[in-house]
């Protein structure tokens, strides 16, 4: 087990190195001159431009820029943006907020998605099953920003149940954006759980358990759900990894200063080190959560072994 985790983490290293180079190259390949764009309609003096270009190694060829970046990285320095703010500070400032939002969203996903899915599988073709089918279809087909503005306008502004925007009310501020962020995945989780659960409930071991006279609750949770959850956990794990990368639309509409907005701005400003620093971190989270999911398989199904 430990050896398995160790090997997986070792394998992550070349992946991280490779992605960071790819992203670096992509930012480098973006057309245009980021320093010129900084100045806008009123051009900077050539001396200032030269100074800024030199500061950010922008005159070097791609490979040299990347090596300089790596050298910095191994000294624990993630570099700075054009305004001189350290990237590490940006991450420290914004990641906790994004993480909180992701946790809220995942909790909604788990509670509502799995519950709805299990109930649908138990009462197939009931009115509840149909309701879930229709509502999940709707949620999946509506773009996130429509959902976000609708929720903000209706639940935030008209009804006043939640703050309209911002993070001034702590965790409570995150409920509405968390719900919007979770909506799409919640729909998938419900569908996934329903299918998987329906299949498991028809399996031989469930029939055996029922015939042994075990209580229905125990049959559903211990024998049914536990087995049915494997594909769902895979999905949620990947989703959590994606959410740690921030949700640009949700963060923008609800004015949440998370990491998604930071990386969006950095791409637009062509701030290489910022983009690479944050995206590499996202990749790491993605790998990490996938590993957690793989380990969880063994907990859910003891037949799965690691070597």
């Amino acid at each position: 087990m430990i050896r398995y985790i160790g090997r997986r983490l070792l394998m992550a290293l070349p992946v991280l190195l490779g992605t960071s180079f790819l992203i670096f190259a992509m930012v480098y390949a973006l057309p245009g001159d980021p320093i010129r764009a900084l100045a806008g309609d009123q051009p900077l003096p050539p001396e200032v431009i030269a100074q800024l270009r030199a500061e950010h190694n922008l005159d070097d060829p791609l490979l040299l820029q990347y090596l300089k970046y790596l050298a910095q990285l191994f000294q624990g320095n993630l570099g700075t943006d054009f305004a001189g703010n350290p990237v590490s500070e940006t991450i420290a400032l914004r990641l906790p907020i994004t993480a909180r939002l992701a946790i809220v969203a995942i909790i909604f996903e788990i509670i509502f998605g799995i519950t709805a899915g299990v109930l649908c599988a138990l009462y197939k073709n009931s009115w509840f099953d149909n309701l879930v089918l229709v509502s999940t279809t709707m949620v999946v087909s509506v773009p996130v920003f429509v959902l976000a503005f609708l929720a903000q306008w209706l639940l935030g502004f008209q009804l006043g149940w939640f703050p309209v925007a911002g993070i001034a009310n702590g965790w409570f501020s995150l409920i509405l954006p968390g719900l919007v962020l979770a909506a799409l995945s919640m729909a998938y989780v419900a569908r996934l759980t329903r299918t998987s659960m329906a299949e498991t409930l028809g399996a031989d071991h469930v029939r055996t358990a029922r015939s042994k006279g075990i209580s229905e609750l125990r049959v559903v949770t211990r024998h049914g759900l536990r087995n049915a959850l494997i594909p769902v956990v895979t999905f949620i794990g990947a989703d959590l990894g994606a959410m740690m990368g921030g949700a640009i639309v949700t963060e923008s509409v609800f004015n949440i200063p998370g990491i998604g907005r930071a990386v969006f701005d950095a791409v637009r400003n062509q701030e290489g080190p910022v983009v690479v620093g944050i995206v590499t971190m996202m990749v790491f989270f993605f790998i990490f959560f996938n590993l957690v999911v793989d380990v969880l398989y063994g907990v859910l199904d003891p037949r799965i072994r690691y070597e």
């Binding site: 006043g160 703050p163 925007a165 911002g166």
Partner: peptide, 18 residues
């Protein structure tokens, strides 16, 4: 000063009195 990224969000906040 409160930082916003979307004008429409700020406007809704003014409407809501925040």
């Amino acid at each position: 000063f409160r930082v916003y990224t979307e004008q429409s969000t700020g406007y809704t906040d003014v409407l809501a009195g925040s």
